[in-house]
Design a protein around this nucleic acid. Structure first.
Lengths: 334, 334
DNA sequence: TTGAAAGCGATACCAT
DNA sequence: ATGGTATCGCTTTCAA
């Protein structure tokens, strides 16, 4: 939609170069693609002409005839969220080893943008990997048959491949760890749930029950460090006897850590904190964050791997193969 | 190079859909593109046939005739480095507002990968934005005339647009800030320079000189939190009287912060720390990091803006317009 | 409302 | 070593 003024410079095509160099199009093609069935001087002449004219081959025309190059669309809600940064980095790495290209779409946490992206992405990539909040119906409608791999969708679906995060054991281990250190009053900073509690909370509840711990000390937190800090304050105000907290994710945990320090509670002596995700970020704070850690590289690699299978139609993984297990990684905060 | 077995499923083309639905190709095109010059029932029939066959339009063929869609290649050394995360996020955002697509390439900090990327990228995108370490000759050779915008290249070049980071005033303000608080022994944790000292160090030296401060208390640091910590230890071992440090970037500063705590020096009382970059990350640590801050969103936006100008050939910005100034943003660490 | 034909810009195959 | 021609898959005139 940009300036279609009359001065819009018409594209320089291979034809123009051919004419300018006084050769045929295929000769130009040869020169540019380093074929050897061409005379040295001719080649040079063509190259010069191409440079002169500022010629750049059309990637579409080229892609049309050379059906190689695979391009994946990666959709995430927010690249600045360290979790998605790690997932994206992992996906990029996995794609790179295959020589695939990745178009990244950051939907700015907006459902609207997400749908818009989905709509436009389909005609730009060969397959889609991403973290979506929209309904499966919407996904189906907009992706129009493109291979899709979902990440971290809580419930598996029959229609799409979905990488599931299984933290049940990890969370149990976290609770066990806390209990072993004498904690009996363990709170949780859950995400600020729209409607239902998170599945991570369910894991927590189950684990707490197994250890005879009250699983009711839960406060919702905005998904940010500030949110985590605020939630911790709320929690401690309501239950001053809480000595440990498990959080929905590391960002919230880091906020809690910071808040604990501000409240004069030292970690882990006065308050133990265990996060979820195992972000690299957790190693930067002091003390390093204990966390039920996910292997984000594996997550990304698995997603890309499955996309490859879907693309070739060869032996796609079933639900059982699409799981990443989280496990307790002790830092120093618990 | 993947499995070109005999069972390789031939692409379903618009032609197949047309035949299956018993209409012509253009009618299929109409149905799929929501044109209205088409009978309702025909349209439905075509859509059904398309779904049935699993038809997906070729993006190349489509792109060839509809010459819209702009795709930018973004090249960065390491997406997990928070600085580049922020730049990438900013670029994505700026591109999104224009409806452009961004293919992201993470070169894993490898010169070799960088060259490889450069080589392959040219045939995949309309223009390139990135942070490169390679020579301009290499850039020129591999980008083959594609519009290129460099980010944070220390020296402007005649051949390429380059966004320059100007921290001279910001660093002077940082030193002034420290001096005003009584610091006289100010160290610097520079990057672990290959050959020459960083330009940030030059700014520091200049500023120190202006305030009559010894600018010789410099230690090289690996660009990581651990590197920053180690460098701080080295610095303090050699110069125990140092009461403040300025660092090459925030990552190093955060490592220094952490190390200071481990050494039992409280910040900012016993040791003042000022970083460079102004990453969001700096707000997560305690105390929040003071930093000579860059507006990374502006950085990304500027790069994308310039790419747009280069692409249309309309009024590209000169060196003067391609500067992002860094300024002191006090946190709590100094 | 539908279809036939003409490109879009490149590469590949086959002559020469 | 070079050129002609078909072709990749789709959209866009232009007729019917």
């Amino acid at each position: 939609m940009v300036s279609s003024s009359g001065t819009e410079p018409r594209r320089v095509t291979i034809h123009d170069v051919a004419r300018s160099a006084g050769v045929s199009r295929q000769t130009v093609s040869r020169a540019l693609n380093d074929k050897d069935e061409i005379d040295g001087s001719t080649k040079q002449r063509v190259l010069d002409a191409a440079r002169e004219l500022g010629y750049r081959p059309s990637r579409f025309a080229r892609g049309l005839v050379r059906q190689d190059t695979t391009t994946i669309g990666l959709v995430i809600p927010d690249l600045l969220n360290p979790f998605f940064t790690e997932v994206a980095a992992a996906a990029l790495e996995a794609a790179r080893t295959r020589g695939w290209h990745v178009v990244v779409y950051d939907t700015a946490d907006s459902a609207e943008e997400e749908l818009g992206t989905l709509q436009v992405i389909t005609s730009q990539v060969d397959a889609v990997v991403g973290y979506f909040r929209c309904s499966e119906d919407d996904l189906e409608r907009f992706t129009r048959g493109a291979p899709v791999v979902l990440i971290g969708r809580e419930h598996h679906t029959a229609r799409f491949s979905s990488i599931r995060i299984d933290g049940e054991e990890g969370v149990r281990a976290a609770v066990a760890h806390l209990v072993a250190r004498g904690h009996r009053r363990i709170g949780m900073l859950d995400h600020d749930g729209r409607a239902e509690p998170s599945i991570r909370r369910e894991w927590f509840t189950t684990a707490a029950a197994a250890y005879g711990i009250d699983a009711g000390l839960v406060v919702g937190a905005d998904q940010s460090a500030d949110g985590g800090g605020a939630a911790l304050r709320t929690l401690l105000a309501a239950h001053p006897d809480v000595t440990a907290v498990f959080t929905f994710n590391d960002i919230i945990a880091i906020g809690a850590l910071r808040e604990a320090r501000r409240l004069g509670r030292s970690v882990p002596q006065d308050l133990a904190v265990i996060g979820f995700d195992g972000l690299q970020l957790g190693t930067l704070v002091e003390p390093p964050l204990s966390s039920v850690a996910l292997d984000t590289r594996k997550l990304g690699a698995l997603a890309i791997d499955q996309v490859g299978r879907l693309l070739t139609g060869i032996d796609p993984l079933g639900a059982d193969g699409l799981v990443v297990r989280a496990e307790l990684r002790p830092g120093g905060s618990a």
